[in-house]
Design a protein around this nucleic acid. Structure first.
Length: 295
RNA sequence: AUGUUAGUUUUUCGCG
């Protein structure tokens, strides 16, 4: 905002992209009034909002589940002669999926296809995730096949969602097969892929396999992050292997990682459950000590 | 010419 004002002060006139950037910023931090203020200001200034402007506002509404408002805005944009694009529809579909209004999501999907707008990998991935989040594996795989049939290549995000869903259902072996499919297709799994799969093995108590995933990611040159460690620490704690959890915790600083609130929370819970209150107390005072140093 | 928009992972506790 300050930069914006400075820019106006210097006599540089904002254009549609300037406004879009501001509006997007406010929308993604759910500062709705501010976003609308700039929207009005641009219209008053004679700058026509374009599809990006509307998409930013729309995705802001969709993210917080204000789907009635999103629909109203969608109609308004069409009314203003701005043609919705694949981003517009995908945002709406995402919003409806998140509020578990599957019928509406599919209605917009059809409308989009009928209107000659081609769904892309993000559209399909959004739909797949919508079905995965309500544990409708059949429909998820149907969509997965459909997208492949339409020559739309699933990407690593698509695979991560499928892997995460299988893991949550305890089907880690199947999840592992998807990881292999990514590699077979010549694509790169990312840190999300590995962390998700690791958590899958942790959830079924196969800590040896979880550890193998960590090792294979290191072997491929990926740096485990704080989430990787938290996942394994939590896994060891739940498998009552608190010594292993502690070992990992101690290795974090050496690997350039700072334990965060999640690390401490998992470890403290694990140690307390195991009745190791002395150890828990030590960890806690370490944490509080570090906290004081920073303040 | 260039810049702006949509999808994915980990912990505890509480509430619904």
């Amino acid at each position: 905002q300050t930069l914006f004002l400075a820019m106006v002060d210097q006599g540089v006139s904002p254009d549609v992209v300037t406004y879009n950037s501001l509006i997007h910023g406010f929308c993604s931090s759910t500062q709705w009034e501010e976003a609308m203020k700039y929207f009005k200001e641009m219209v008053d200034g004679g700058i026509l909002p374009n599809v990006v402007t509307y998409n930013s506002l729309l995705s802001g509404l969709c993210k917080v589940g204000r789907m009635e408002d999103a629909q109203t805005l969608f109609l308004a944009m069409v009314h203003q002669g701005v043609t919705p694009d694949v981003v517009t529809y995908t945002s709406l579909i995402h919003g409806f999926c998140n509020s578990t209004q599957w019928e509406e999501a599919m209605r917009y999907f059809k409308e989009m296809v009928d209107g000659g707008i081609l769904p892309n990998v993000i559209t399909y991935t959004t739909l797949i995730q919508g079905q995965c989040s309500v544990a409708n594996w059949r429909e998820a795989t149907r969509l997965f096949t459909e997208m492949m049939d339409r020559q739309i290549s699933p990407d690593v995000v698509t695979f991560n969602i499928l892997i995460g869903t299988l893991c949550r259902e305890g089907r880690v072996e199947d999840a592992q097969r998807f990881l292999e499919m990514i590699i077979q297709r010549g694509e790169e799994p990312d840190i999300f892929t590995y962390n998700t799969l690791m958590d899958g093995y942790c959830m079924v108590g196969q800590m040896d396999e979880a550890k193998k995933v960590l090792e294979s990611m290191v072997g491929k040159g990926y740096k485990p992050d704080v989430v990787s460690y938290n996942t394994l620490i939590n896994g060891y704690c739940r498998s009552k292997m608190t010594n292993e959890a502690m070992r990992l915790f101690e290795k974090m600083p050496g690997n350039g990682l700072t334990p965060d609130i999640v690390t401490y929370s998992a470890l403290l819970t694990g140690l307390c459950r195991a009745g190791r209150f002395m150890a828990a107390q030590e960890i806690l005072s370490d944490m509080l000590g570090l906290c004081k140093n920073k303040c």
